[in-house]
């Protein structure tokens, strides 16, 4: 029993820091760069992704015996896209402002590699409870990374923090002299690069971890490793 709880705990905790999908796994870069201009948006996007991740993990691990392996990819995609559409309805109804700020990236949660990657690598092989915890942990790790990065960009780039909520804080001097470049596209790449460098330093990770198909879980799902490696090597 205690062993079981320990295992479940592990599935939950690992995604938050040790295997953080963005900062360590280098996945889901597109939303990480695009919508992190404001901390509140980062939280919104993170929680929306968490919702989709948890729900799709649960459903996929429940259906893992039913889905034939030849069509598993389209099945996963349809299930994920369904939950994305659901979260679109909810956000349109309750947070219309955020809905229009996140815009197209809300629909693009469907193709976020974290979700399909977890479905393929974890949920299709594990029990429902473990899959749900794994999804929750990964989602919260993603939210944390987004929130962290968005906070840096918002504080330096527009001199506020948590704008759009009632907890909004104005940073005295920066607010009048914001470094606009941080909330422009170029600043996104820059902040993420620096953040990963800091994580590298803290974790004393051997640096040359490259973004390539080897650590993209989609590659295993969509094509098989050989063609990926061939593409990378060519």
């Amino acid at each position: 029993m205690s062993d079981n709880t320990h295992g479940a705990m592990h599935e939950f905790v690992k995604g938050i820091i040790k295997e953080n999908p963005v900062l360590v796994g280098l996945l889901g870069m597109c939303p990480t760069l695009a919508i992190t201009t404001q901390a509140f948006n980062g939280i919104g996007m993170g929680l929306a992704t968490t919702f989709v991740l948890v729900c799709s993990n649960i459903v996929i691990s429940m259906l893992k015996k039913v889905i034939p392996s030849t069509v598993r990819l389209p099945c996963f995609i349809v299930i994920i896209a369904g939950f994305v559409t659901l979260i679109e309805f909810l956000m349109k109804g309750y947070l219309p402002e955020m809905y229009s700020e996140l815009g197209i990236f809300l629909s693009l949660i469907t193709v976020n590699c974290i979700i399909l990657g977890r479905a393929e690598a974890f949920a299709s092989k594990n029990t429902v409870i473990h899959s749900a915890l794994d999804g929750l942990g990964m989602g919260l790790g993603f939210t944390l990374a987004l929130f962290f990065m968005a906070s840096i960009r918002e504080i330096v780039g527009s001199g506020t923090w948590l704008a759009g909520t009632k907890f909004m804080i104005e940073i005295p001097w920066v607010h009048d002299n914001p470094t606009l470049i941080f909330i422009m596209p170029a600043g996104g790449f820059f902040v993420l690069g620096c953040l990963i460098a800091v994580i590298n330093k803290l974790a004393k990770r051997k640096p040359p971890k490259e973004i390539s198909c080897e650590n993209c879980p989609n590659a295993a799902a969509c094509a098989g490793k050989e063609s990926c490696e061939a593409a990378a090597a060519k």
């Binding site: 790449f189 690069g193 990963i196 460098a197 040359p208 971890k209």
Partner: peptide
Amino acid sequence: KGVPATLI
């Protein structure tokens, strides 16, 4: 080295 330099 690696990803950070690429991103910057």
